[in-house]
Computed example of a mutant assay.
Amino acid sequence: MATENPHRGYRRIAGELACAGRPVGASTVWAILKRAGIDPAPRLSGPTWAQFPRSQASGILAVDSFHVDTVLLRRLHCMVVMEISTRRVHLLGVTAHPTGSWAVQQARELAMALERLRRPSQVSDPGTEGQCAVNASSTGSIRPECP
């Protein structure tokens, strides 16, 4: 396995063997590879798993919805978005009766606000350039699509 794919490390080989029904410890695989003269897999040039979220944080948004009960016993539903890099929370909208179209509209407004932030010097015209469309699938997931 190690000679077929030199990028597989001893832990991955041990995992492959365990999936095949032959559980072997990672240290045993390491010892066998060392005895055979096969060097460990080279370290990949990309970031580690611990570094990856930090390097991508500027482009990640977290969206959540929750409800608040008021003093007058009314229930209001809120939708918020958090910028992961700065940990700023922005209120997208509040309504007493949330619907799918309301959620799509909030996502549309978020996409347009993000587009304005990305290109602050340009004025977005009503044409197709600079506009974002929001697709709501049957599963309820909302995904902004920008050209």
Rank of each mutant, 00 (worst) to 15 (best):
T3F: 02
T3Q: 10
E4D: 12
E4C: 05
N5K: 04
H7P: 01
R8G: 01
G9Y: 01
G9Q: 02
G9D: 06
R11E: 03
R11T: 05
R12Y: 02
R12D: 02
I13Q: 00
I13N: 00
A14W: 01
A14D: 01
G15R: 01
A18Y: 02
A18H: 03
A18M: 04
A20P: 00
G21N: 00
P23E: 05
G25Y: 11
G25S: 15
G25P: 05
A26H: 08
A26R: 08
W30G: 01
W30I: 01
A31G: 03
L33W: 04
L33I: 03
K34Y: 03
K34T: 05
K34F: 02
R35D: 05
A36M: 02
A36E: 04
A36I: 00
A36P: 00
A36K: 01
D39I: 03
D39L: 10
P40E: 09
P40F: 05
P42R: 12
R43I: 10
L44C: 09
S45G: 13
S45L: 12
G46A: 11
T48C: 13
T48R: 15
A50W: 09
A50H: 14
Q51V: 06
F52S: 08
F52M: 13
S55E: 11
A57Q: 10
A57Y: 07
L61T: 11
V63P: 02
V63L: 12
V63W: 03
D64P: 07
D64K: 07
S65K: 09
H67K: 03
V68N: 00
V71Q: 08
L72P: 01
R75P: 06
R75A: 06
L76Y: 04
C78D: 09
M82D: 07
E83I: 07
S85Q: 11
R87K: 08
R87C: 06
R88Y: 04
V89C: 04
H90V: 05
L91T: 03
L91Y: 01
L91V: 04
G93S: 05
T95C: 02
T95A: 00
A96V: 00
H97P: 01
H97W: 06
P98D: 06
T99H: 10
S101N: 11
S101W: 07
A103S: 13
A103T: 03
Q105W: 09
A107E: 12
A107S: 15
A107V: 10
R108D: 11
E109H: 15
E109N: 15
L110T: 11
A111I: 08
A113C: 15
A113I: 09
A113H: 14
L114R: 14
R116S: 11
L117M: 15
L117T: 11
R118P: 01
R119V: 07
P120Y: 08
Q122Y: 06
V123N: 07
S124P: 09
P126H: 10
G127F: 06
T128D: 14
T128N: 13
G130E: 09
Q131I: 10
Q131P: 05
C132N: 10
A133G: 13
A133K: 12
A133L: 13
V134P: 10
V134H: 08
N135H: 15
N135D: 14
N135W: 12
A136I: 13
S137H: 14
S141P: 04
S141M: 12
R143Y: 07
R143C: 12
P147W: 09
P147A: 14
